[in-house]
Design a protein around this nucleic acid. Structure first.
Lengths: 217, 217, 217, 217
DNA sequence: AATGAATGAGGGTTCATTCAT
DNA sequence: TATGAATGAACCCTCATTCAT
């Protein structure tokens, strides 16, 4: 069974770390608070309180508040995102790609759900990405990796079939991502209560398909 | 002569305000510092020093540090963006819309330049948008307004001509914006030294045109 | 009129500094507390309270607690001790040196009084000298300077008269200092209530005279 | 074979105590660290680490950090110093006292060597003596005791022979100690690399002999 | 007995904000 | 009006001490 939720992936990542239960609670609480109020406005006392732990315990494992943030971000880069990518790839390869439209529809639906399921976590990440170029760079590397595996062969196949425009895979990905984010980010930021996922998916898919499919000569 | 630079618009906005020269210097300095280091990491002493003003003076006009931020953000909403929108509209109406492709090309080129010219200011804004939903909402209202004026008639015309897909203007705008941001935001965040504006414009235009033009029956 | 009291010299040193009244109060309070409880056991809150000042004010002038200590020690080196040395020299030159015995008697009496009058200040200094070799080195330089001026001519003269042993002035000084400290330091550390200055002076003088005067062939 | 080194005496003192090996390691490590960085700047974690012991173990025997210091200081008072004194006395009695000059020369040479061999330990002690008057008082009692045994008879004999001035033994001792410390303490504090023991001994002996021997009528 | 994770009071320091001059 | 010294709450972090295992 696949995990579609960053929380679960984050838990799993924590589970296989050598941190004690309390240290994990610290990271957990930090994630919540950083998402809610931002890094700067979260105090170490807040963290300790929410984690039901003393302030001293917070600093047992992590030397500084910044290291807590790093400890949260690092698994995102090295674990959560690759893992999410892998599962995404797994689902992709599980089903035979019948057409470009089906492919786009799947991706859009999958990623929109992913985004909406993990609103809180994405918010922290986006905030940090803004003054942490390194983070974005590493995230870029994850995308590159995704673009190598089965995605590459699917795109190649679709291009060979003359269904998909002959652009670089990176460019195609950029368009897909920005279109999806065009729907997801506003929802994350304002928070919109009940987004109509079906409608969103339909709209994004329709636009992307039109933009990416090969026009017949 | 038109202003393409937020700085100039911001100056102009300040000029017609009833703030003293020192208060303007405070806002100016605050903008610089908030962009550079973020709101939280900027101290009122930093601001006073850069503005060549005493800390007391900073608090003469603004009751709190937060009010300084508001004072910067408010003109963005009420002045800078509408002004930018108006100029954008003015340029748009100045030239007769010959075709959807030309229209898209113009918008994309114009907005990409706008974005790249104002990287610093946009960074502050994006940062604030993340934990200030109200800001995004107001920004949305500005967009709505832009979508009423000449843009509306242009889009209507293009749709009547059968060139532009029959989607809502808001949706069309969303696709344009997200596609442009897909190129601009990475440049703002990492900072990429010399972006190839021509290539970016060509790619975004090509994709948007394909995605938005009406397929003949 | 001469100042025999480090407190007064310290005040005078403060008076001609550009520190505000509150900053001076901070240094004053720090001196008291460092003497009483030691540097480490004195908190910045203690200092603020005794100085009748907020903790923020303590840090207006001095960036760290250590800098407060430095600010106290530095004038000791550059002002208080040279000043004390100068006054000592002045008194020395004021009276014609009639004999080695009178010379020793005067020095011993003067320095013992100096030490007993400034017990508290000396205690801070001695404590700091222990883990601040630089301080001792600079103090050494002050002694060197004292050994140049009129003291030099007096010792030279006494040696030429065949009254004083033909040792280096530094060595002679070392013996004088250690003998005086042999009486003064125990009083400073335990604190002995009412030291018999007359008796102490007599004993130290008798011993030093015996040790330092030239035995006739 | 005699022990001239406080370390060895301290070891011996530990050996006959009922402390476990780990507790001894704690005291050992504490001594090292207190000497190096001072009591306040030494953390219990430092001690535990150097002693290769857990922090819990440190607190098994000693209720507080202060008790560790006490546990170190107490043997100095009750064991190390008396032991050192006894050995000093033993050596003294082993050789017949031929003259005042030989007596002084022996003491000076012996104590200067003692001081230079145990620089680190003396530094801790001196530091503690400064804000621990009780310690100095007890040290005084040790001196008193030394002044009772064979030293007393030697001094008596020298005084009867008309070689040694007729001052109280305490006073004579004070002069000897302060003269020796006048050479030893500066070496301990700055640390001077290679002190010329021969020269120091010669100088101190010469001065003390002149100061203490009986002038013929 | 030994461990070391956990505690929490308190330390030095910062900084938004106030106010006497 | 403008200043910047002064304030003090609150921050991040340390460390002596405790206690479950």
């Amino acid at each position: 069974m696949t995990l579609k939720n960053i929380d679960q992936l984050f838990q799993a990542s924590l589970a296989q770390s050598d941190l004690s239960a309390k240290q994990k609670a610290v990271l957990q609480a930090s994630l919540m608070l950083f998402a809610e109020k931002g890094f700067e406005r979260t105090t170490t006392r807040d963290i300790a309180t929410l984690a039901q732990v003393s302030e001293g315990t917070v600093y047992k494992q992590f030397k500084t508040k910044q290291q807590i943030l790093d400890a949260i971000l690092q698994p995102f880069i090295t674990q959560v995102f690759p893992q999410a990518a892998n599962e995404f790839i797994a689902e992709l390869t599980a089903r035979p790609v019948t057409s470009l439209h089906a492919f786009i529809q799947f991706i859009v639906y999958d990623r929109i759900n992913f985004g909406l399921t993990n609103q809180k976590q994405l918010k922290v990440l986006v905030q940090q990405l803004l003054d942490n170029g390194r983070l974005l760079a590493e995230l870029g590397r994850v995308f590159d990796k995704v673009l190598q595996g089965p995605v590459k062969s699917i795109l190649d196949q679709l291009q060979r079939q003359g269904e998909l425009v002959n652009w670089s895979h990176a460019r195609i990905f950029r368009h897909i991502i920005s279109t999806v984010l065009g729907y997801v980010l506003p929802i994350i930021i304002l928070p919109i209560a009940d987004p109509d996922v079906e409608k969103i998916t339909a709209e994004a898919t329709e636009f992307l398909y039109a933009g990416l499919h090969q026009k017949k000569a």
